[in-house]
Amino acid sequence: MSSKAANFAALFTRILGRFPQQQNFCFAYGSAVKKQLTNNSKENMFDLIFCVDNSSKWHELNMKQNPSHYSGLKYFGHNFISKFQENFGAKIYFNTLVPLEGVTVKYGVISTKDLVTDLLEWSDLYLAGRLHKPVEILKPTSNSEVQTALQLNLQSAIHSALLILPESFTEYDFYYTLSNLSYSGDFRMIFGEKKNKVENIVKPQLNSFRLLYKPILGTLSDYVDFPSLKIDEDIEMALETRSKSPTICSQDISPLARLHHLNQLPRWPQKALTRLWNRGSLRQDTEDVLRAIAYDPDCNEIVLKCLSDIVWKSSISQSAKGIATAGLLKSVQYSFRKIVKMMR
């Protein structure tokens, strides 16, 4: 382990030590994590997610341990905080602009059941979308249900991306489309986020994306050809090869292949597709709708619209919820930081 990686691990060990230890799963994401790994920058916030089995109990312990992290909602008690977390927005409770161990932290709390639901069904496509991209696992889960849901979420992302992409595409296009699933439709991309946010995520982490998705892509050879999967494991050789000529991938875009991908989509996107298709007087069940969409030449646009609609609703509701959980002052400060970052 390099000295930078060791310093990074030590920092997060200290940060996690400042929170209740009743966590089922914990990961870090965002630009600060990447910058910390590469250039030790502390300019951006460190984004953490705590997955807990009992939200009410966790907030009770955390409010005793870290009362200053909470807005005025803390005066309503931990049970209120837990219900507010689980019944509104994307079912996450965020505390932001928290100074810890010399850095600024934003952390979210979600119950295990709600995380599993989003991963399996894409009810909000919020944390499910963040977990489409490489993250830093700080505390691996031993919960088999969460482990399975994490893998199925990656599979769903692959099927969705292939439905959106054309017959031929580059490996970069594939990972870009995967990453964009949770940003297409996010109202914050209109104003508040960098326009090249997805590109900034994918380009520096191509190899991390490759390692994350390679095991699953290897099982889909009947539907898509990824030449990169056949390249020698030597990372430097692989990167050098790709820098000289982009890897061109190809997929089967026949109606039968599309139908296979559509059938593998999570529950909420399938429901959204059915509602969109049945807007007229005709009413068809999900099976018939998916078959019809598979034969539609605009299949990719239809899928993208339905996914964008899910993201749009959850991004608005979670952002509105964030004003209450952060408090007015921190909300203004957080928004200002985002705008400054975007303008840069």
Rank of each mutant, 00 (worst) to 15 (best):
Y175F: 12
S68D: 14
L220E: 13
L163H: 15
L162V: 02
K195H: 10
P255V: 03
R283I: 12
I201P: 01
I339A: 12
R258I: 03
Y93P: 00
I323G: 11
S3C: 07
N44G: 08
K194Q: 14
W58Y: 15
S156W: 15
E193P: 11
N196K: 12
Q22L: 07
K42F: 15
D285R: 06
R188I: 06
R18K: 08
K113S: 15
M189K: 06
T148E: 09
F169D: 05
E101T: 08
L152S: 09
Y223W: 14
F27Y: 08
P140Y: 10
S281T: 15
P215K: 12
L178S: 03
I201A: 12
E167Y: 07
S331L: 01
Q205H: 01
N300D: 08
L73A: 07
G72L: 03
Q147C: 11
S68N: 11
G218I: 01
Q333S: 07
E240F: 09
L100T: 01
M63A: 05
K113N: 06
L259C: 07
I302A: 03
R242W: 03
N180Q: 11
F94C: 09
M342A: 06
E287C: 12
N143P: 07
I231Q: 06
F12L: 01
K341G: 03
K271V: 05
Q22A: 04
C306S: 12
E145P: 00
N39M: 11
L138M: 13
S71E: 05
H132R: 05
L73N: 12
K34D: 10
C306T: 04
H260G: 00
N62R: 05
S31Q: 11
E233R: 13
F187Y: 11
S243Y: 15
D47W: 00
A238L: 13
Q36S: 14
Y213D: 14
N300L: 02
K230R: 07
E86K: 10
H69E: 03
V135L: 02
P215E: 15
N66Q: 09
P166M: 09
Q284S: 11
G89Y: 07
Q270W: 01
N62G: 00
W277S: 07
R130T: 05
L220C: 04
G322S: 05
F174D: 09
W277K: 04
S315D: 14
L178D: 03
V98G: 00
F187R: 12
K195Y: 09
K139L: 15
E233M: 11
K139A: 06
M237P: 00
I323F: 12
S315L: 03
N95K: 10
V116H: 06
Y126S: 08
D118K: 10
D222G: 11
N54G: 00
T112W: 02
N7F: 01
P227E: 14
E236S: 13
A10T: 14
S56C: 06
G129F: 09
K64P: 00
T104F: 13
L138N: 04
Q251S: 07
S142A: 10
S142E: 06
Q284K: 08
T286M: 09
A6R: 04
G89R: 08
S243D: 10
L61V: 01
D298W: 02
P246C: 11
K83R: 08
P166N: 04
G185I: 01
S111H: 14
S144C: 04
S71Y: 08
F88R: 03
D309W: 05
G322V: 01
I235L: 07
E145Y: 00
D296F: 02
E193C: 10
I310C: 08
I190V: 13
S250C: 11
